[in-house]
Design a binder for these strands. Structure first.
Lengths: 241, 241
DNA sequence: TAGATTGTTAATCGATTAACAATC
DNA sequence: TAGATTGTTAATCGATTAACAATC
């Protein structure tokens, strides 16, 4: 799936580690805001919600940025991780599909402070295009190629209905985008070299439901087991907005 | 983290498999909509975006629901997976925090068809409470305990700002909720027996940025490398809505 | 020097994959 | 019977973890 370049740098960072680096970065930001200048692997691990052995192992792939007997300098480690991830500079991003979710994404103020800059909002619906969301004009989807070229956009966000997602992805790839964050509930097919990550609300809920069901089974009566709906309703065809 | 009951049923399904069952379910729904009644592991795997060996291995944990030489009956397999996950019945869910994201979640029509029913929208802001979103009245957060009790709610969704998330989680847990889906960018501390899953927009984007940066490094010039922002901007304190 | 904590080793655990016997 | 495809085995790969030597 993800790019797996082989002989590039001395270190080859495992995927599982890469996925945790942003979590460490956020935990470090929290420490900075609390006025903490130095921390041990134990403290940082707690803030990030992992165990300290895993944290130290993860950081060891980046280099030796701590001091034995002392810990880590919060500011220095923050910079090193940000540099490793690649968010010491802002990445321009386009969001396609300005429905409810697109609105929420456009208004999400966390992007800017974490290395991203929304350069355009696009929607195929010409009614929506022309409006303004979060201070950014919504533009017709057809302007995608121009916008990607003008702003050197490498990352695209898809917040369209499932039916439109693949064709939006195709246009994104053709226009030069090589990383896609997909919120539409559909599997995207993209060429090698293009990375896709997927966020799916109901899949996350279903994973919780699985465990919830098991809790109820182990300890019947202790956990409320929801009102009884019909299985027909639960299994009916999708009506994704 | 997640519940790990030991001697419960004959099978002990791996976490990685559980996380993929909802993906298979969605792929099967797609096949049903296309009028396909039977499929091979190869076809279903393609629709789900995994390889067929992994799919068959995953399904083998549930039982033997296929026919050698033939494949799987789509409707039968759909039911078996839905039953395993626990979504043949509807799970009542509450959403706390009706900002932009809460709005989007409340309006997400996919919940209903996938085993969930939003029974209440809650917000601490009394201005918001009293409004109506997606046909559901927004109620004061203080009514949480009553609503959870009345509707036997086991699953809660947090869409509040980061600063409020932990206290909302505490109240949820105290009220009897044992599964939480957290959209706020903060690490939640909960008692054993409570499951938390986290969805984080900027973490997903940062993972993409990491790989994007590597692509640019391997093949300079071929991939646009975004406008140059200041590292100060990228690392400034959070401004999460 | 004594205490603390990192960075690394090595063992363990879990997940993935290819191959194929079972069987429709 | 011949062809197709599942379910399972076993090998491989990657991730986690505890323990501790290195070193501040």
């Amino acid at each position: 799936m993800s790019s797996r370049s082989s002989a590039e740098s001395a270190r080859e960072i495992p995927e599982a580690t890469i996925a945790r680096l942003p979590v460490y970065l956020r935990a470090l930001t929290g420490l900075t805001e609390s006025g903490i200048a130095t921390c041990s692997s134990e403290e940082l691990a707690t803030a990030a919600g992992v165990n300290s052995a895993k944290l130290r192992k993860d950081l060891s792939y980046l280099g030796s940025y701590g001091t034995r007997g002392v810990g880590y300098d919060v500011e220095y480690l923050t910079y090193q991780i940000a540099r490793e991830i690649g968010v010491t500079q802002d990445w321009p991003v386009v969001i396609v599909g300005i429905g409810n979710l697109g609105h929420a994404l456009a208004n999400y103020s966390g992007f800017r402070s974490r290395g991203f800059r929304v350069v355009a909002l696009l929607d195929a619906d010409l009614e929506r295009a022309g409006q303004e969301v979060a201070g950014i004009a919504v533009r017709p989807f057809d302007e995608l190629e121009q916008i990607v070229a003008d702003n050197a956009v490498a990352i695209g966000v898809i917040a369209t209905p499932a039916a439109a997602a693949q064709s939006v992805a195709d246009r994104m790839v053709a226009s030069g985008i090589t990383s896609i964050l997909n919120f539409a509930p559909s599997v995207l097919t993209v060429p090698a070299g293009v990375d896709v990550r997927k966020v799916d609300l109901s899949i996350e809920l279903q994973i919780l439901a699985y465990h919830e069901q098991r809790k109820a089974a182990v300890d019947p009566g202790s956990v409320p087991q929801g009102a009884v709906g019909s299985s027909a309703a639960a299994l009916s065809p999708e009506g994704v907005s």
